[in-house]
Design a protein around this nucleic acid. Structure first.
Lengths: 256, 256
DNA sequence: GATTATCCGTTTGTCGGACAAAGCATGGCC
DNA sequence: GGCCATGCTTTGTCCGACAAACGGATAATC
């Protein structure tokens, strides 16, 4: 006798959604569809429970899902209101996933080699005075930190984030932000010697300066070229210091 | 009398975490630190409530946060167990954020212009036979769909995803997956005329074929060049069809 | 012997009600 | 007009409860 149809994989496992998941989907749908807009207040928990015909506890579980999804927020004042998920909330989750998957610096670096030069080029085209000024300030702060023998890594990370923001390309910003978070601990050891005369620091500042100059003159090709050289330098730093590019990155503070 | 110190902004508003958030942080911490590994079972809700000294309802709210974060999952059997957040769960959230921020096709396309050629080049270097075979099958399926006058867009999207996976670069995979989801509806109208002889379809198939050939011979430069040409073609398609590259993408099915 | 039916303890999903603490509003008081 | 006391509302947390579903063990059936 042949196997009965029930033995074959005719039917997939079917997901039976629970009530609290339906609450999530219902409200998520309203938000994505635009009927609930950013800033709009949601009804009271009891009101929601009434409307859905569910218990407040059940509704609350649904609200927790929305909360973690970044779709609603509870400010100082109690009341819930709708909020767009921004890069600041999404990026940590993606970078946490990268950490847990034990992504290596080499992997990060290759993506940076693709994204950062492109960001520089695009920023050169859409140069916004306000962003350029913030980049100027960043460069000045980097110089000051270097002269004072203080860590420059935070300024470096900010420099690259500012360039991404200067493009105005939100897809790009959302893409690279998770990696930006991981780059911070990853490149910190490269500038362990904070002395002003430290070669790596000097090269970094020279590159940042050249990129900013290119941005100001709208020279996309030069900005892109300098950025590429700058990113290559990170790899060089890893080699020079004998660090392992194939070690998993993490968010712990890297050793000095 | 001068203003008392309490009036000045000495102290920032301090976030008092609620119990259910502490539950989230506690379990999240164990997972990120690696003391709870993928597949490990979590204690019963009642057991957790006992350990934390909280009520089961409160613990459940914390579990909802973990669930939405993709850190725990509840399979067929009831019991909770730890799971690593993968691209499949994170990508929809990022792409939803892009939709809600009304990201345009132009923005997406610029990022694709940076990432896709880099992915092709990297895939050419780390060519894994299994992945190449899946790409072969994909190409055959694309051809078959074109001959049968059926939509080729799903196969095209899969082709690019397969290339990203062939690199083995998980940072790259996590970066581009959200955009991959949005590309599907965005480029669908480009291949509205499914006829085999349709120019855009022919060019797509030619490009995919050339890229795959380059991958098989490990020729990174050629793979990268063809991919760049291929991505440029998407922009061309938008121009030719008179579509607006500055319109916000969405996840709704694009019109035929 | 393998499959099916039955039973039982466990765990989850949902419910109803309760209360303290913290916000918001209101009105009275100086 | 500005300040404080008061009451109402809303949230965060707790308690207790129960049906449904699951897991596993045992008995019944072919």
């Amino acid at each position: 006798m042949t196997a009965s149809p029930a033995d074959s994989s005719l039917f997939e496992r079917l997901e039976v959604p629970s009530a609290y998941q339906m609450v999530f989907k219902a409200i998520e749908g309203e938000i994505v569809a635009g009927r609930l807009r950013e800033g709009d207040r949601l009804p009271t928990e009891t009101a929601l429970a009434d409307q859905f015909g569910l218990n407040r506890s059940t509704v609350r579980e649904g609200i927790r899902l929305l909360e973690q999804a970044g779709l609603v927020r509870r400010e100082a004042g109690r009341r819930l209101h709708v909020s767009l998920p921004h890069a600041a909330e999404l990026a940590p989750r993606v970078s946490r996933a990268m950490v847990m998957q034990r992504v290596t610096f080499r992997e990060l670096w290759r993506v940076a080699m693709a994204l950062e030069p492109a960001a520089a080029a695009e920023a050169a085209l859409g140069a916004d005075p306000a962003h350029l000024e913030r980049l100027e300030e960043n460069l000045a702060a980097t110089l000051a930190a270097a002269e004072a023998g203080q860590p420059i890594t935070p300024w470096d990370v900010e420099f690259h984030t500012l360039i991404a923001e200067a493009t105005g390309n939100r897809a790009l910003i959302l893409c690279r932000e998770p990696m930006s978070l991981l780059f911070y601990p990853a490149i910190r050891p490269l500038f362990g010697n904070h002395a002003k005369g430290h070669t790596a620091v000097q090269r970094l500042i020279a590159a940042h300066g050249a990129i900013l100059t290119a941005l100001k003159s709208g020279d996309a090709a030069t900005a892109e070229a300098w950025m590429r050289r700058h990113i290559v330098d990170f790899k060089r730093g890893y080699d020079v210091q004998g660090l392992d590019m194939d070690a998993a990155v993490d968010r712990r503070t890297a050793p000095e």
